[in-house]
Design a protein around this nucleic acid. Structure first.
Lengths: 343, 343
DNA sequence: GTGAAAGCGCTAACAA
DNA sequence: TTGTTAGCGCTTTCAC
């Protein structure tokens, strides 16, 4: 017998039964009034042998895994990786183990991962879904407590936690308008993603409320390349905007690249604002005004809601207004917006 | 009976034995010459019932989990999150499930996580360890195939894959020297981390080879705050450097902040170079020359080595030269280095 | 206070 | 080509 230690080994060595060993090792000693001496003997033997419980056995027997699934569109996106980092840390602190899946922005992959996760007797799932609801429909019927982050499907029974994208976007555009901008273009990410569409809605609404007619919407994905290409296209137009709203910092970098190539100065000729507030925004050639999402707050809240559900096992019906939680963002002013009010 | 489907359900419904069902569902039909008809019946029933295998049972029975552990110092660091992203994707493609742990740059957490992971019957582990070897010593005795990324312990029997930090650093410093710099300061990260110490070694060696005596080494962690503080301190000195080597992009941001506050212009007054080559470097006030690590290559190689080990189950002895794999980096030239040769 | 025994869902000898 | 059976490590009734 090599280093393979089970409760059986411990039982044999200490002459106690499997039951007793199991109880001691699981902290249910009190409940069964197991003597201090016994506890000590067993605990010491376990330590001496370097006993490590077999989770598969525990899970199989108890049908409860202590494993939480986490599925994100792409870890290489800083927003998602910070969420993942916070979520995983909090969950670990609560004694859970985290199964991480990177769906690589691919619906098919996401589907596969969701299936793989289901096989793992998860006690809960935190998901930043891709755009389409379909993949999550099976889940919606199941009893696995689930919390969505950043994106959601309005008729699902799960909680979701995200920034109030609509409001944030509205504010951001309103700021531009207050600064005298009348022609504002928007470069979006993936239009299947609710967080994106809400931002677009906010953009449109702000224009409308202020009676502006100029409107330009481009872009198909949250990437630097797209930001670059869309800006190139935008600059072809004869009626150029005075401000560009980039719906993510990745897009922003592309926008800046195109602007630089065209030797258009920011903010003198074109103002620029973005979503995400990455730490490097302060150090760009011209620091960019941006919406800061309360990332850790979002992650923390999501974990709390998940744990609550896991604990009371009750997926009781909740009103939509209660299920969809929107947090306020912060507008960080920097120097990428020109003041056009005196011109 | 609610939606709880096991092979037993399928066996009952189709009047085949558990064995046959198990075989069909595991793709070992061929080996046992199970008839096409039987296969079809079972497969269809499984599909109809939405059968999802219970991994805990599989794992317990076969003592083989298809789960790979991944432990990283912090997902909020882009370098690590890109590694994690690539690793997790590749592993998923091979049918593995990834247990992710963020050790939060904390030795104690790392230890806990390593223990938690051991309980999961992992078939393999990929780790970006924190500095200290101690936590991994238990592992070194075990038979879990392990591959280290970025950092390693020289007398361990595991593979490790990383950039050739020493060489990269040497090159970078040599570049500064070639540009006429004679006083080069270095701001490091955590000195317990091999990747850091090798970079420092490269720095020192380059100075030595070129007979330079000015040397300045500061810093204790890979953070923006540290970069900032250390630069503040550095600027107090009466004998200022003409160039600063930041051992990461996070440190770099801090350096730039301090420089800006002190109204010291880059590169006219002080040149700056860094490690990591984050995508935003191009867009900084002055684009920063930097070492680009072959991140995805590293991740891919690590996964390949892990899978190899898992497959032949042989942790045969390997020479150190064979185990520690160093990849070349690329020096990306931008405009943060002043040419001092004519001055 | 402690123990015996059943069984979670699945796989793999061994049999037929 | 298919089936019987034992058992992976653990928890949990039920019993004493």
């Amino acid at each position: 017998m090599d280093g393979h230690v089970t409760i059986k080994t411990i039982a044999k060595n200490t002459n106690f039964s499997l039951t007793t060993v199991s109880r001691v090792l699981n902290g249910t000693s009190e409940k069964h009034r197991i003597s201090k001496t016994t506890q000590k003997i067993i605990l010491e033997e376990a330590k001496k042998l370097g006993y490590i419980p077999n989770m598969a056995a525990k899970t199989l027997r108890s049908n409860r895994s202590h494993t939480v699934g986490l599925i994100v569109p792409s870890l290489s996106n800083p927003f998602f990786s910070i969420v993942a980092s916070t979520v995983s840390k909090m969950l670990h602190n609560q004694g859970y183990v985290v199964l991480m899946s990177d769906s690589d922005n691919n619906e098919k992959e996401e589907r596969k991962m969701l299936q793989a996760l289901q096989a793992q007797n998860l006690v809960g799932l935190i998901a930043i879904p891709l755009g389409k609801r379909q993949n999550y429909e099976l889940l919606n019927q199941s009893t696995i407590p689930t919390v969505f982050i950043d994106r959601f499907f309005s008729d699902f029974s799960f909680y979701s936690v995200s920034t109030d994208h609509y409001k944030s976007s509205f504010q951001l555009v309103e700021h531009l308008i207050e600064m005298g901008h009348r022609k504002i273009a928007c470069i979006q990410g993936d239009e299947h993603v609710v967080s994106n569409t809400y931002r677009v809605d906010g953009y449109r609404e702000a224009l409308k409320v202020h009676g502006l007619t100029y409107q330009y919407l481009g872009g198909v994905s949250f990437t630097e390349e797209e930001g670059y290409l869309e800006t190139k296209l935008l600059l072809q137009k004869k009626d150029r905007p005075t401000a560009i709203l980039a719906l993510s910092d990745t897009i922003l970098l592309g926008v800046l690249k195109a602007l630089k190539e065209a030797k258009i100065s920011v903010p003198e000729e074109v103002s620029v604002v973005s979503f995400d507030n990455s730490s490097y925004l302060d150090f760009l050639e011209v620091p960019v005004t941006s919406i800061a999402q309360p990332i850790t707050q979002i992650a923390q809240l999501a974990v709390r809601l998940l744990l609550e559900q896991i604990d009371d096992r009750g997926l009781s019906y909740r009103e939509e207004s209660e299920r969809i939680i929107l947090l306020d963002s912060t507008l960080i002013f920097r120097s990428s917006v020109a003041d056009l009010r005196n011109r």
